[in-house]
């Protein structure tokens, strides 16, 4: 008799005992009660439409539009394309899979962040992406972002008047001061890696001129596009705030065609 046979014999000898024990333990737990708490569904909306989580609006504004460029882009684009959604304002960026808002809890329960939010909205839009717009979107993402960050975070008069109160309103002190400082530092590094401090006004003017040329030359379309939403996201707050330092605001306001294009069809909050 080899070892396997011996093990098998022992196993068979004790099988009735182990089976009896197994059938005994299978009875546990003897009592099973219902859950004490049921979590909210995702998305947590009465009609099952998507939830779009965004950073809150400016403290000096009642327009219901997020103060963050990326959040406002998603908000504007979703509104422009009539994407069914409900807006939730929160400062909880950590809830997002990539640690940044916007976050979209899609109707099918998926959690989307970053570019995936725009892709999701675009996929439900009846208008396809216009490849001609892509270079101008990229231009805005560089030059107009630099202008935005400079205006609201790096120009002390403006950041103390507009942006710092936003942090104070949404975080307890001194966390608000620390987070505001960290955001300023991040913005400064991002800007300094791309532009010289002295050239950002000139590059903003140049970018707006290019965009203006494109707007006047493009084929008129009844449907707003991602480009329109992008332009709105960058320029809305620059044009609508009453800031102590108005260097950038004046440059933007001087680009008449561009301003007209975003003022003609502003997205309302929702």
């Amino acid at each position: 008799m080899n070892l396997n046979n011996a093990v098998s014999a022992i196993h068979n000898t004790f099988r009735p005992l182990t089976d009896a024990w197994q059938s005994f333990t299978d009875r546990f737990p003897l009592h099973l009660a219902e859950e004490q708490f049921l979590p909210h569904p995702v998305p947590n909306t009465s009609d099952g439409v998507a939830e779009l989580f965004l950073l809150p609006p400016r403290t000096d504004s009642a327009d219901g539009l997020s103060f963050d460029v990326d959040c406002l882009l998603a908000q504007a684009y979703a509104r422009m394309t009539s994407y069914p959604h409900v807006v939730r304002f929160t400062v909880n960026s950590d809830m997002s899979p990539n640690g940044r808002l916007p976050l979209l809890a899609a109707a099918d329960g998926r959690l989307l962040a970053g570019k995936d939010v725009i892709d999701e909205i675009q996929s439900k839009s009846q208008h396809s992406e216009d490849t001609e717009e892509l270079p101008f979107i990229a231009l805005a993402d560089l030059d107009l972002r630099v202008a935005f960050l400079h205006h609201f975070l790096l120009v002390p008069a403006n950041s103390n008047h507009i942006t710092s109160p936003w942090y104070d309103a949404h975080y307890a002190s001194p966390i608000s001061w620390i987070l505001f400082y960290l955001e300023q530092r991040k913005a400064r590094r991002w800007v300094e890696a791309r532009k010289l401090d002295t050239e950002y006004i000139a590059s903003t003017r140049s970018a707006l001129a290019s965009i203006s040329t494109y707007i006047t030359s493009r084929t008129p379309s009844s449907a707003p596009s991602l480009f329109d939403a992008t332009l709105f996201a960058y320029l809305h707050h620059l044009l609508s705030t009453t800031a102590p330092d108005t260097h950038i605001s004046k440059v933007v306001a001087g680009a008449g065609d561009v301003v007209t294009s975003i003022v003609s069809d502003p997205p309302s909050s929702g």
């Binding site: 929160t90 400062v91 909880n92 950590d94 809890a105 975080y171 966390i175």
Partner: peptide, 20 residues
């Protein structure tokens, strides 16, 4: 509360962020 797992639930995500 941060560094959430990729499969973190929405209840945990709602509790993330800064508090004092």
């Amino acid at each position: 509360v941060h560094n959430l797992s990729s499969n973190a639930s929405m209840s945990i995500r709602s509790s993330a962020g800064h508090t004092l």
